[in-house]
């Protein structure tokens, strides 16, 4: 009798497993074919000298990686990526938080502003890139026009054309694009904070600043960590906007790992080398994600 019960339970379990598989299956299949398999394939290709257009590959072992460690352009693009990570994490999230808090406050017409603030994120990246190329245009652009209207001609630059300003100009655009995303994410986090806590604080005579630092911010920390993770990984993999706006130029000033990988793969026909770059990007993004998540774990153990 007891054996029967166990068998039935096992069968139920199996049935449940099959049932779940039925629903997860299709998505998992697509995920495996288009995400998991390519990751392993990239590692595999990175061990070869391969043009990507012919059937024969020559096995090199780790030579692609050895060359990568000697590649100045790669390190410059890595540096730009790191710059982008810091710029993104330390401007996008604070600005997103500021906007989210602003939207929380009870100002008239907030619904309208919420839509307006979110608009940049709804635009396609290529459209944003072309829009900002016109804004930065040294002769016809709005930015230089504004500076000249303010009598600040000395500050006028050919923003995307000079090595010293190109990266900054591009980063500003990227921030403009992504701040709304973090605004929405953090706003969702803010709505999750129980009203009673805030009310209790108010009754206890907490100043708004103290309420923010002692209640809102700590309770928002999980959302901020998620945002930071997304922002870091996104910045390490960033490609499209830079590719449209500057193609990594002038003189590699805005080259990122992803744009460099694209060049190696599709301009120079070095698919193996490009795969090595791609693998490095994966490893770096992986390490960054693990680091942030384990810091988060330490923090939550720390008792916040």
């Amino acid at each position: 009798m007891a054996g029967d019960a166990a068998r039935i339970r096992r069968q139920n379990k199996l049935g449940k497993g099959l049932f779940l598989l039925f629903f997860i299956g299709p998505a998992l299949l697509i995920y495996a074919v288009y995400n998991i398999y390519p990751i392993f394939a990239t590692f595999y290709y990175s061990l070869f000298d391969w043009t990507g257009i012919q059937a024969e590959k020559t096995f090199l072992g780790l030579e692609n990686y050895a060359n990568l460690m000697k590649d100045r352009v790669f390190f410059r693009s890595l540096g730009n990526n790191v710059l982008l990570v810091f710029a993104s994490v330390f401007t996008q999230i604070p600005l997103g938080l500021a906007l989210a808090l602003l939207l929380q406050s009870k100002i008239k017409g907030m619904r309208f502003f919420r839509t307006v603030y979110f608009l940049p994120f709804l635009m396609s990246t290529v459209a944003i890139a072309i829009l900002w190329m016109f804004i930065y245009n040294p002769t016809f652009g709005v930015l230089n026009g504004l500076l000249s209207d303010l009598g600040l001609q000395s500050l006028q630059r050919s923003w995307l054309g000079e090595k010293s300003t190109a990266m900054g100009a591009v980063i500003a655009t990227i921030c403009w694009q992504f701040v709304p995303f973090y605004m929405i994410l953090l706003r969702a986090g803010l709505t999750g904070i129980p009203e009673e806590l805030l009310e209790a604080a108010r009754i206890d005579g907490c100043t708004p600043w103290r309420t923010f630092t002692r209640i809102t911010l700590p309770l928002l920390m999980p959302t901020i960590i998620t945002s930071a993770t997304l922002s870091t990984i996104g910045s390490l993999k960033y490609f499209d906007l830079i590719f449209v706006m500057t193609e990594g130029g002038p003189d590699s000033a805005t080259e990122l790992m992803a744009t460099y990988m694209y060049k190696q793969a599709f301009r120079f026909f070095s698919m193996g080398y490009a795969s090595a770059i791609s693998s490095c990007m994966f490893i770096l993004a992986f390490i960054a994600a693990v680091a942030i998540l384990s810091l988060d774990r330490l923090r939550s153990r720390g008792g916040y």
């Binding site: 245009n137 040294p138 054309g161 002038p250």
Partner: peptide
């Protein structure tokens, strides 16, 4: 040359 030529885009007619 015109100012900022290294950052101008040919395809969009700049």
């Amino acid at each position: 040359f015109v100012t900022g030529f290294n950052g101008l885009d040919y395809d969009t007619g700049q």
